[in-house]
């Protein structure tokens, strides 16, 4: 009967959708299990713990990047925010009169968040009001902010890094008895952002704008405000990641974030959020983070030359982006087909 076949067809595609949406997780699981069995040193408690901590801190940054990506944009400036946050927060905690006081850490954190918000706001204004493409706006802010970080480091640091951070801060380094703290923080941020995107008005507006800003505007969505907020979020997330990366390294490092971008963009793209906007989310980014960090871990344990890390990651990103394009094209074709049938 026509209706059952139609329902049958729809049910099949629901299962298809489930597999497609979580494909990366399955692939990751496969790699993970194989690594457990075959790679020496992978299954140790130490390795698993450090893997989780690495995932946690990367997740915060990658979640941040997910937001502008949902609108088909990008944020190159996150790495420089991490640079500046690391440089200035360490300075505050070690070289100012606040050293040793109970205010050192809170002030450092607040200032860091303010930096992230400020950079995010500038990017947001550039994209939403000045109509600049995000890749070039965030590129220029990246150059300016990383330059400022270097200038600051030149002025105030004796070497390229500044250690001696207070214990209350380095407790976040993902080691020792409280190793799980970064993981807990990341989990909290993840849950909040997931809720934000899937269950709130704001989240729905983000997806709507990412799919079609003109329709969204006419339907009463404040498009410019939404676009602005995406950059703001990535800026603030970058600063949070910067704080945790600094704690992890136990020092303020002027060039801390410089090579991290490929991990951020890799997590987002491999995870399945479309670089064209309108689909994806932090759940996908979580999968991407797990995958990217697993690859790094595997390459590391296998002793692969560090120069090839980026190459390997790059190839995976290419595959993921290509796959996303192909499935998108297939979905569009299926839609045309279905519209003919629906008459």
């Amino acid at each position: 009967m026509a209706s059952t076949t139609k329902n049958g067809k729809l049910r099949a595609s629901k299962v298809q959708k489930l597999i497609a949406n979580n494909a990366i997780l399955f692939i990751w699981l496969l790699f993970f299990v194989v690594s457990l069995i075959t790679i020496k040193g992978f299954a140790s408690l130490y390795n698993i713990k450090s893997y989780l901590v690495n995932c946690a801190v990367l997740l915060i940054a990658a979640i941040g990047l997910t937001f502008p990506t949902l609108n088909g944009g990008i944020d190159f400036s996150m790495t420089s925010v991490i640079d500046l946050v690391s440089t200035i927060s360490a300075y505050i905690m070690v070289l100012t009169s606040l050293k040793g006081s109970v205010w050192a850490i809170p002030v450092a954190i607040v200032v860091s968040l303010a930096i992230g918000a400020a950079v995010g706001a500038i990017n947001g204004l550039a994209v939403s009001r000045l109509k600049m493409p995000s890749f070039v706006a965030t590129l220029s802010t990246m150059m300016i902010i990383s330059g400022i970080a270097v200038w600051f480091g030149n002025r105030h640091y004796e070497k390229v890094s500044l250690s001696g951070l207070p214990d209350g801060f380095t407790v976040l380094n993902g080691k020792g008895a409280l190793w799980f703290l970064p993981v807990v923080i990341a989990a909290g941020i993840f849950l909040y952002c997931h809720w934000l995107l899937t269950r709130t008005l704001f989240g729905r507006r983000i997806y709507s704008v990412g799919v079609n800003p003109r329709t969204s505007e006419i339907s009463g969505i404040p498009v410019k405000k939404v676009v602005f907020s995406l950059s703001l979020i990535s800026g603030v997330m970058a600063s949070m990641a910067g704080i945790l990366y600094t704690a992890k390294n136990g020092a303020g490092i002027v060039t801390l974030g410089d090579d991290m971008f490929i991990n951020f963009v890799g997590s987002v793209v491999i995870g399945g959020t479309s670089p064209m906007g309108g689909s994806g989310g932090v759940k996908q980014t979580l999968y991407g983070v797990l995958f990217v960090m697993l690859i790094s871990n595997i390459l590391n344990l296998l002793g692969v030359n560090y120069t090839m890390y980026d190459v390997v990651k790059g190839v995976f990103i290419l595959l993921a982006a290509g796959l996303e394009l192909v499935t998108r094209r297939m979905n569009e074709k299926a839609a045309v087909l279905a519209s003919k049938e629906a008459g």
């Binding site: 550039a126 590129l139 802010t141 990246m142 150059m143 300016i144 990383s146 200038w151």
Partner: peptide, 13 residues
């Protein structure tokens, strides 16, 4: 060196 990146960033912007 950092002045170069800052100035170039500003020019791009």
């Amino acid at each position: 060196p950092y002045v170069y990146t800052i100035v170039r960033g500003a020019i791009i912007f």
